[in-house]
Design a protein around this nucleic acid. Structure first.
Lengths: 201, 201
DNA sequence: TTGAATTAAACAAATGTTTAATAAAAAATT
DNA sequence: AATTTTTTATTAAACATTTGTTTAATTCAA
């Protein structure tokens, strides 16, 4: 299943990913990619047929990484709901601080490539252990009875949206990048608390 | 201050806005715009000098509308904090349902045009009546003492992010567009409740 | 009659892709 | 082991479109 990539292919993919993340599909040219990866222009088509195909490969891998990080935690058998919240916040915030363009890229290029990429999602979140645990809490009367989609959506919203709107936050608070990141580190503790307060009766 | 636009200029602007919102700056061509607005290609440059200039005008207006809706409510003198939360949720959700591409457009093109557009923000949110009311609650000991930036960020996150991630939500829940919108209408009531629970001691 | 609005055509630059030639590596043959 | 052959990788150049913008001519309105 997993393709073995040559050194040159990896160089192309790395440069392409960096550029696609920063500038998006349309604003990235094949010459940009060839320059950034220091390979001849024609090799892009030689190895990946077209810019579009190359993009689809990168989009698929990136989205898969993005979702996997969530699915792994959500389906862990041992941890409690609260532990899952903490781990998700922590992992995601670290991941996005390391690659700040990731969320904008994912949500933005997503609306163009619908079904093929979204196949990855197939029930892995709404049928996760985390949602089970939430539903158990509802049954026991400790959590409010609301469609779990809100629960799942709220977690991701509180984690990811601040990054997407970082230019606004940075402007409003006169932050520099480090101060913004500190704010996000702070949220690792806060988000699990907030989510619990939101669902508790 | 406000420029008076001729009929042709409005036709161009309307078509351009629709296209920029749907496809972004780079993926929209001047010929797309001329076709959609049914005007001659050269008129775009005749009236707006360049594609870039036209985009900046539209970006500025759109972002201004987007922020104004918030600022108005946040600075209302009469309403309580809870009422402001309800009104913001309601207004924003209606606005974005009417123009679903708005949030993605704003956040995505924002990172490219930083200062000029973000000037609009100048203290209008962090120094708003809403933030005052929040700080009062903190002083009175009814709200937790956390930097109000989290408060402001969380409101926007819970309102806007679900729209941005709508392809994911629609896929996870096997929703159609109407069912997704219903979910968002449901959140008009829920978000103010959630926010209050998050800040209460 | 003058200035503004509109048009078709043209221009130059950029862009994704292909071609044809060469270099390098691997395989086959002597 | 040495040489030839074949396959693969890399390159510079070219190709056909697309794209943003301009020109020069024409129509329209004041």
């Amino acid at each position: 299943m997993k393709k073995e990539y040559s050194e040159t292919e990896i160089k192309i993919k790395t440069a392409a990913k960096s550029l696609f993340l920063r500038k998006g599909y349309s604003a990235t040219t094949t010459r940009d990619i060839s320059k950034e990866s220091d390979i001849n222009l024609a090799l892009l088509n030689y190895y990946f047929t077209s810019k579009k195909k190359l993009f689809e490969i990168i989009m698929l891998e990136t989205f898969y990484d993005f979702i996997s990080k969530m699915v792994e935690v959500y389906n862990d058998e041992k941890s409690t709901l609260e532990e899952k919240l903490k781990l998700t916040s922590s992992k995601y915030i670290d991941m996005i601080i390391a690659e700040p363009h990731l969320p904008t890229f994912v949500v933005n290029e997503l609306k163009n490539n619908p079904s093929s990429i979204l196949k990855i999602l197939k029930g892995q979140i709404m049928e996760s252990k985390l949602v089970d645990q939430y539903n158990d809490g509802v049954k026991k009367g400790v959590y409010k009875k609301i469609d779990p989609i809100h629960f799942v959506t709220n977690i991701l919203s509180l984690i990811v949206f601040p990054f997407i709107s970082s230019p606004i936050i940075i402007k409003m608070k006169k932050f520099n990048r480090k101060e913004f990141n500190d704010m996000m580190h702070e949220r690792k503790k806060l988000i699990p608390q907030w989510i619990l307060q939101m669902i508790k009766k």
